[in-house]
């Protein structure tokens, strides 16, 4: 399906974070469409629908009720239909365990939520601009965590 915008999905249970996220894309003035889900189950229900529009980038919080980000990641990577979605882990923590686990499960990049709105905008614009084909081929443990 051809579309003239970048379709972005955010799965995060925190309303404030959703607000920052959408605000940031609004201010970025990139042609994007942001769709958000409040937990993992909602996200998976959406993605599993037959006619669901697959996002260009999926931002996945790890700590969510009902279904955690890790569970969603595993399910997505196991499904033929969804396995091509570029997944950016979007989490408050950047613990070694979490980074290791999500890298192994096949996430494409790990973003630690910034505590500065300017930084947030910068991070998001960079992530959206990534050529995923190229990025994924060169992906390793060291460049998995996005550093600014």
């Amino acid at each position: 399906m051809q579309k003239d915008y970048i379709y972005i999905i955010l799965a995060d249970d925190d309303e404030d974070d959703i607000l920052f996220f959408t605000d940031a894309f609004d201010e970025l003035k990139i042609n994007t469409k942001v769709n958000s889900f409040k937990d993992g189950e909602e996200l998976m229900n959406y993605l599993n629908k037959d006619n669901a529009l697959m996002p260009n980038v999926l931002f996945l919080d790890l700590n969510m009720p009902k279904k955690t980000g890790i569970e969603c990641l595993a399910e997505i990577k196991a499904s033929q239909k969804m396995s091509d979605i570029a997944i950016a882990i979007y989490s408050t923590s950047a613990s070694d365990d979490d980074i290791e686990k999500t890298f192994v499960l096949g996430a494409n990049i790990y973003i630690k939520k910034p505590s500065d709105f300017k930084k947030l905008k910068k991070v998001l614009s960079e992530v959206v601009a990534i050529n995923w084909q190229y990025h994924t081929n060169a992906l390793n443990k060291d460049n998995f965590l996005l550093r600014l």
């Binding site: 925190d14 404030d16 974070d17 920052f20 605000d23 408050t92 923590s93 613990s95 939520k113 910034p114 505590s115 500065d116 709105f117 300017k118 947030l120």
Partner: peptide, 20 residues
Amino acid sequence: SHDLQEPLRKILTFISRLEE
């Protein structure tokens, strides 16, 4: 420390929003 980070991050982000 992990759980404290989250509200703090938001406070900081809101402050940066206010500043801006």
